Amino acid sequence: MYALDALRNMKAGQVLQVIADCPQSFKSVPEEVVKHGYTLVKEPEKKGHDLYFVIKVTS
C-alpha cells in the first residue's frame, strides 16, 4: 500500500489523507493503520464511490 510508504517518511504529528475507491479499503485501511502504529483521526468517510481516510503519524 503506497500510503504506508508515505507514512514511513512522515514525522510525528503529520497527517495524511488517503482516498481509495476499493470497497475492501473500508476494512483493510483501518486495520493496517492500527497494525503499523498509526492513528485513524476520524471514521472513514464515503463520498460517492470514494472512501476518505485521515491518518496521523503518532511516533
Rank of each mutant, 00 (worst) to 15 (best):
T39W: 03
F53E: 11
L7I: 08
Q14V: 01
V18A: 13
P44W: 12
Q14F: 04
R8K: 14
Y52V: 07
A6F: 08
Y52E: 03
L40H: 08
K47F: 04
P30L: 04
V57F: 03
G48Y: 11
L4K: 08
T39A: 14
G13L: 01
L16T: 12
E43C: 01
G48S: 03
Q17H: 07
Q14G: 12
G37D: 11
L51W: 05
A6Y: 08
T58D: 05
V57T: 15
P44M: 08
E31V: 02
A12Y: 05
Q24M: 15
A20I: 02
D21P: 00
S59P: 13
E32H: 08
C22D: 13
K56P: 00
V15S: 03
V57N: 09
M1L: 07
E32K: 06
L4M: 06
V34E: 09
P44R: 03
K46R: 13
K56A: 13
V15G: 01
K35I: 02
M10T: 02
Y52K: 12
K56R: 13
P23L: 09
Q24E: 11
M1G: 12
I55V: 08
Y52M: 15
V41F: 02
D5C: 05
K11G: 09
D21W: 10
A20Y: 09
L16K: 07
P23V: 08
I19G: 06
V29Q: 06
V54W: 13
D5Q: 14
K56I: 06
A6L: 09
L40R: 03
A6P: 02
P44T: 10
Y38Q: 05
F26H: 11
I55R: 05
P23H: 05
A12E: 10
A3V: 10
D21F: 11
Y38M: 06
F26A: 13
E32Y: 02
K42C: 05
P44Y: 08
S28G: 01
L40M: 08
A12Q: 06
V34C: 00
H49C: 13
A20V: 10
K35P: 00
P30Y: 00
K56Q: 15
R8E: 14
Y52W: 10
K11Y: 02
C22F: 12
P30R: 03
V54C: 00
S28P: 00
F26V: 14
V15Y: 10
Q24T: 13
V18Q: 02
L40D: 03
K35L: 05
K47E: 12
A3F: 14
R8S: 14
Y2H: 13
K46E: 13
K35C: 07
V54L: 12
E43Y: 02
V29N: 02
R8Y: 00
V41K: 10
V33T: 04
G37N: 09
A6V: 15
P30H: 00
V15W: 06
A6K: 11
P30N: 00
M1Q: 02
A12C: 06
P23E: 02
E31G: 00
Y52L: 15
Y2P: 11
M10E: 08
V41E: 12
Q14A: 10
E45L: 03
A12V: 10
H49V: 15
C22A: 10
Q17S: 03
P44N: 14
P44E: 06
A3N: 09
K27W: 04
E32F: 01
K27F: 09
V41N: 01
Y2N: 07
M1D: 07
S25C: 09
L51K: 08
A20C: 12
K42S: 04
